[in-house]
Simulated assay, not measured.
Amino acid sequence: MTQEPENHEHRLKRLKMRSMRRGIKEMDILLTAYADANLGLMDGARLDLYDQLLHENDQDLYQWVTGQVTPPSPYTDLINHVAQTHQTK
């Protein structure tokens, strides 16, 4: 059975919801602010990377965003952007 590709608007809504409903409140706040400011501006490849990032453990994400631990290389730029977006609010 072949699954239909997800339409763009549905994908943005799904990613925003996953950004809002994390395991820890700190990540809810950080990722919701980032999603609100950036999801609509992202191309397909960037959305793919963000979708992958949302599958990571919240404790790891929090340590990466706060600079406690260096993020894995595929996420370095994205994590830096998430951290900067939150700092400017």
Rank of each mutant, 00 (worst) to 15 (best):
D77W: 05
I79P: 01
R14I: 15
Y62N: 09
G44N: 11
D48H: 10
D77Q: 15
K16R: 13
I79C: 02
K13E: 13
E56Y: 00
G44E: 11
Q84W: 04
P72L: 12
S73I: 13
T85D: 02
L61W: 01
M42I: 03
E6I: 14
R21V: 11
D28E: 09
D48K: 11
H8R: 14
H55L: 04
L12Y: 07
L61S: 01
D43R: 07
T2K: 12
A37W: 02
V69C: 12
L54F: 04
R22I: 12
Y34N: 00
N38M: 08
K16M: 13
K13M: 14
G40K: 05
T32N: 09
K89F: 11
E6Y: 12
T32F: 05
L41I: 08
Q87I: 06
D51Y: 05
P72Q: 13
Q52K: 10
L47E: 03
Q59S: 15
Q59P: 03
T88P: 01
I79T: 01
K89D: 07
Y50K: 00
V65R: 02
D36E: 15
P71W: 01
D36M: 07
N57D: 12
T70P: 09
L78A: 06
L53Q: 00
H8N: 14
L53G: 00
R11K: 15
G40C: 06
E56D: 03
N38I: 02
I79S: 01
K13H: 11
T32E: 12
N38C: 12
G23M: 08
Q63W: 03
T88K: 06
T70L: 12
M20I: 13
D48C: 06
L12Q: 07
A33P: 00
H55Q: 07
P72I: 06
T88C: 02
A37N: 08
G23N: 10
S73P: 10
L53T: 00
L54V: 05
Q3T: 13
Y75E: 00
G44F: 03
K13L: 14
H81K: 13
